[in-house]
């Protein structure tokens, strides 16, 4: 569907056969194509604009070496800058805190919080040998607590017993208590989905944070998200102190520009990728993979 950025840039720049430096005009023409490619990948417009400015500065004046196609050179500058913006070094989930280490998942409705909670629990339990407890604070979506309970049974991870009629903060306190008493190393809190403009529910998230003081607060977001990624990430980050982002549905064929947007506006690292519906479909974040995807390579 999309012509790859390499092809487009080659078409524009590889006509330049002269030795010397890329002129401002050459670069500007190339940047229009880069802008287009980033927007087609769902990178937020303001993030695109900043990004283009930075790349432009780096590209103008670059020597066009005869042996290297200028298109490829610009691609490399774009690619490197993408990786820089996405965060070069992977940042894993951090366990360095007093037990029980609390981790909270937040995000829009249907983004993949409950599934990610179970995936992360399983990984911490098997790979890091942590004793994990999961609790669902979702008292609104039909069968949400049941969903986490079933996932707990499937993964052999303990879940907090369901008590009908409790509100999310009460459940949080009960979960903290159960985690302490039960000698759990990690407590994962799965919260209900909420839109970032719903003030009442955003306030609820803040109360849960206050009651549990999480060591990790992860924004679980859909890799297929469009331009709203910026507002969504900013709003959640303002309401609670995010420590990282989990990008789900990476197994789709979306271009994943939301990753760049969210990272750029919050500065928070992308820590994990959801790569499928199954419980083991969770991977560490590698910036080059997302960079290639955004560029359609």
């Amino acid at each position: 569907m999309f012509e790859s950025l390499s092809d487009r840039l080659s078409g524009i720049l590889d006509k330049l056969t002269r030795r010397g430096a890329l002129s401002e005009a050459d670069v500007s023409e190339a940047m229009r194509e880069v802008r287009r490619a980033l927007l087609e990948a769902d990178v937020a417009l303001d993030v695109v604009k900043d990004f283009i400015d930075r790349v432009k500065q780096k590209a103008v004046g670059q020597e066009v070496v005869k042996s290297v196609a200028p298109g490829q050179m610009v691609i490399k500058i774009v690619h490197d800058e993408l990786i820089e913006t996405l965060g070069r070094d992977p940042q894993p989930i951090d366990l360095a805190a007093a037990v029980p280490v609390v981790m909270m998942m937040v995000g829009l409705q249907g983004s993949g919080k409950t599934t990610t909670t179970a995936k992360l629990a399983k990984r911490l339990q098997t790979r890091e040998r942590q004793k994990v407890l999961m609790a669902s604070l979702d008292t609104r979506r039909p069968a949400a607590q049941e969903q986490l309970k079933i996932l707990g049974e499937q993964t052999d991870v303990a879940t907090l017993p369901i008590v009908e009629g409790e509100d999310p903060v009460t459940i949080t306190k009960r979960a903290m208590d159960a985690a302490r008493r039960g000698g759990f190393d990690v407590l994962l809190l799965d919260t209900a989905g909420r839109t970032h403009i719903d003030e009442e529910l955003m306030a609820e998230t803040a109360s849960i944070e206050k009651a549990s003081n999480p060591h990790e607060t992860l924004l679980v977001a859909d890799a297929l998200t469009g331009q709203d990624a910026v507002n969504l990430a900013q709003s959640f980050d303002r309401c609670v102190s995010l420590t990282g982002i989990v990008l789900t549905r990476i197994d789709g064929d979306g271009r994943g520009g939301a990753a760049l947007s969210m990272r750029a506006v919050t500065g928070k690292p992308i820590k994990l990728l959801g790569t499928g519906e199954k419980i083991d479909a969770l991977e560490d974040f590698h910036p080059d993979r997302i960079a290639n995807r955004i560029l359609g390579m």
């Binding site: 998200t225 469009g226 520009g257």
Partner: peptide
């Protein structure tokens, strides 16, 4: 379709 979805909704 989810209204927050970007260009992938076309596919």
């Amino acid at each position: 379709l989810d209204a927050t979805t970007g260009q992938n909704a076309l596919n």
